[in-house]
Computed example of a mutant assay.
Amino acid sequence: MAYAGSAVLEGDAAAFAAAIRSLVNNPRFSDVTFVVGRERQEVFAHRCILACRCQTFQGMLCQPQPGAQEPWPPQTPLVLSHVQPEVFLAVIEFLYTNSVTLNSLIALEVFTSAVEYGLVDLRKLCVEFLTGALSVELVCEALQAAVTYGQMDLQQHCLVFVEDHTREVVQTRGFHELSGVALGVVLQSDRLAIDEPDLIRAVREWAHVSSVECITEAWKCHALRKGRGAPSRLYQCRRGTQPREHHSYLQ
């Protein structure tokens, strides 16, 4: 209840942030323990912070233990075997401090966890980091994650990078591991910086019989100019295509 003449006065924000940060993975006063990854590393947390910061954790911690009626007891660890400890600790860091420490080795997995846990602000921070850290080796993995989770902002950043470095990207392991849908996103672009025969060879190295229909549809989309606005003509060569005599018949 607010009284007349009352005011909210702010204390030292840095000191407060440092005090909260000291609780990250601190067993003191912890009332929930996670056993994380193949290494089965223990991560200590405080359910009140997790519950107020993330609805997914709130639901997880409020669910009764199998065969019991009460919420998950403090002495019973929660096993998360599918996530790396470094990735989970980055998520915990964000929940406690609203900031996150990222590097190129874990950023994609932290992004994936942010999407799965419904942490919109963490997802945005990961997209911001990945956008600045894209490389020939990383871009296809990032594109695949963007396509899988429907993250159009990251997908667009990745596609622009692929368009500018196509010749190098198609030689990477990440390119050969793209799903048919993700490859279709690439092939629909008319700005790929690679000659068409070289692109065909790259796709043949990737190709699986079950994905031929997807590849055909993507090439058709490029040819009919459906990918980047209304067509000015039936067909336009991609940016990297070398000029050839028969191209005159396409005009």
Results as ranks from 00 to 15, higher is better:
H176G: 03
P74H: 10
K220P: 00
L108R: 15
L183A: 01
K220T: 08
R38H: 07
R228T: 09
Y117W: 09
A15S: 15
A202E: 05
A107N: 10
A45C: 02
N98R: 15
V83P: 02
Y249D: 11
G227F: 07
S104N: 12
F44D: 02
V100P: 03
S99W: 02
M60Q: 12
G132E: 11
E141G: 15
I200Q: 15
F16H: 11
R167G: 09
D164K: 15
C237T: 11
V43E: 13
A182C: 09
L192W: 12
Q171R: 14
M152K: 12
A45Y: 04
G37D: 07
V209N: 07
F129R: 03
L143E: 01
L9Q: 13
S135Y: 02
P231H: 07
L224R: 14
E141T: 13
G227T: 01
I92Q: 09
S189T: 09
V127P: 00
E128A: 11
A13K: 13
G11V: 04
G229H: 09
G180T: 04
T172P: 08
Y149L: 05
L134H: 04
Q188F: 01
V169M: 04
D12C: 14
L154G: 05
C158Y: 06
G37H: 05
T56S: 11
L178V: 06
S104Y: 00
R47C: 04
L159K: 09
R167C: 09
L61I: 10
A114H: 02
M60I: 14
V87K: 02
L9F: 12
A17R: 15
E217Y: 08
F16T: 08
Q144S: 11
P197Q: 06
R40G: 07
M1I: 10
H208C: 10
Y235F: 14
C54A: 14
R201L: 11
V32Q: 08
V169Y: 02
F44P: 02
Q75F: 10
F111H: 15
G180A: 14
M152P: 00
E137N: 14
L224Y: 13
N26R: 06
F88Q: 08
H82T: 11
F16C: 13
V170H: 01
V147A: 09
Y249T: 11
N103G: 11
D198Y: 03
W219M: 10
H222Y: 03
A193W: 02
V170I: 14
R204K: 15
V24K: 09
A15D: 13
A182W: 00
G37Q: 05
V127M: 02
L134E: 08
W219F: 14
I92Y: 01
H222E: 00
L89R: 14
V35S: 07
F94A: 05
T216P: 00
A2S: 10
Q65V: 03
